[in-house]
Nucleic acid binder design. Structure first.
Lengths: 186, 186
DNA sequence: GTCTATATTAAGATAGAC
DNA sequence: GTCTATCTTAATATAGAC
C-alpha cells in the first residue's frame, strides 16, 4: 500500500462507475484497468479473486457511502420534511441527475455470484428500512410506512430505467420531486 | 427455412428469454445456442450479423408481441377499468409474476449497439402512449394522462427491480394491483 | 438449414522483472 | 505495488461436409 497509485476507496469508486454502467458481465478487467489506470496484473495483486472480489469490494464501498451520505441524514435533527429534502438532493447527486444507473439494478442481472446478489439484497433492505423509519416518524403506521418506503424506492428505480432508455433525465427528476410527499404526507 | 428446427418467431422467443435475464453483454452465443437448441454456426447462418442482429430481431419480436397481447387490449371494447384489468393480467404473465426482468431494463445497459437502444426507446414510447391513451379515455387531461402513464410504467419497472433483488415477487404483484387505480381513477 | 471443426480475437489469470 | 509478458480459457466468427 506504500507505492499505491490509488487507495482502496479510490479504486472502488472508479470500479463502481464501470460496474453500474456496464453491469457485471459487461465489465471486463480491461475496462476496469482502463477506468482505474492500473494494469490487470495490479488489480489481481490487490484483489486476487479477480472481478468477483473487486465487485464485492466496490459494492461494499458504495453501500457504505450511500448509508453515510444519503441515508444517515434521515436520522439526524430536523423535521422529516427537511430531512427528506436533503436526501432527495443527495440522491440527485448520487445518480448524476438520473444519468447514472443504480447498482442494485445493473448488477442484479443473472451471471453475478451469489455473494454479490446477497450484498445487493442487504443494501436494498437497509435503504427500505431507512425510508420506512422516516415515514413512520412522519406519522404513518408501521405497515403503511413500509409500503411508502417500497413505493419511494420503486419510484426512483423505475424512473432511472425510464430516464436511461429515453435518455431523458427529467423523468428521474420528476420522481425525486415526488419523494417528500410520498414519505411524509398522508 | 425448409429444414428449420425452429421458425424465426420461436427462435426469437428463446433468445429473448436469455437476453432479458443476462443482458446483452452477458448473453454469449454459447448461451444462445444452448437456449435455442441450435449450434452457433446455425445461428450465424440465419443471422449473419451475429449477436447484434439476433438481439434486434428478438427485441422486434417481443415488441410486436407486447403490442398485440398487452397494449392492444387497451384499444378494444369495454370500460377503461375492464381493459386495464385485462392488461394487468397480461403483464403478470409477461413478467412471470415478477420473476422475469424487463428487456427495457436489462438490455439498456451500456455496451449494446445504438440500434438496440433506439429500438428499446421506441418500444417504451409505444407503451407510454398506450397507457396515456387509456388514462385520457378515463377522464384525465392530456398532460395528466401522460404523467399517469409515466408513473404506471415506472411503478412496473421499479417493482421488477426490487422483486429481482429481494427475490420477492410480491413487490411486483403489489405494483400490478395499483395499476387500475393509477390509470383510471382521479 | 444444420452440423463439426477450426480460426481469431478478447477475457480471465499468473510469472517474474523492477 | 505496479509493470510487461505470457498462459489459458472462452468468446466471436468462418469453412466446408452433410
Amino acid at each position: 500500500m506504500a507505492n499505491a497509485k490509488l487507495n482502496d476507496a479510490e479504486l472502488a469508486d472508479k470500479a463502481i462507475e464501470t460496474f453500474r454502467a456496464y453491469g457485471y458481465e459487461g465489465t471486463s478487467l480491461n475496462r476496469l484497468a482502463e477506468a482505474t489506470g492500473l494494469e490487470k496484473a495490479s488489480l489481481y495483486y490487490r484483489y486476487p479473486g479477480g472481478k468477483d472480489e473487486i465487485v464485492l469490494a466496490a459494492v461494499k464501498r458504495v453501500g457504505q457511502w450511500f448509508g453515510e451520505n444519503v441515508l444517515q441524514p434521515l436520522a439526524v435533527t430536523g423535521s422529516p420534511e427537511q430531512r427528506v429534502r436533503i436526501v432527495a438532493k443527495r440522491l440527485r447527486e448520487f445518480y448524476g441527475d438520473g444519468s447514472k444507473p443504480c447498482v442494485l439494478d445493473t448488477l442484479s442481472l443473472r451471471g453475478g455470484a451469489p455473494e454479490l446478489q446477497a450484498a445487493l439484497r442487504v443494501a436494498l433492505k437497509d435503504w427500505l428500512s431507512a425510508f420506512a423509519a422516516i415515514a413512520e416518524k412522519s406519522g404513518f403506521a408501521h405497515d403503511q410506512a413500509a409500503l411508502r418506503a417500497e413505493k419511494a424506492v420503486i419510484d426512483i428505480e423505475g424512473a432511472l430505467v425510464l430516464s436511461r432508455v429515453l435518455e431523458d433525465n427529467k423523468v428521474f427528476l420528476r420522481a425525486l420531486a415526488r419523494l417528500r410527499k410520498l414519505l411524509t404526507e398522508a
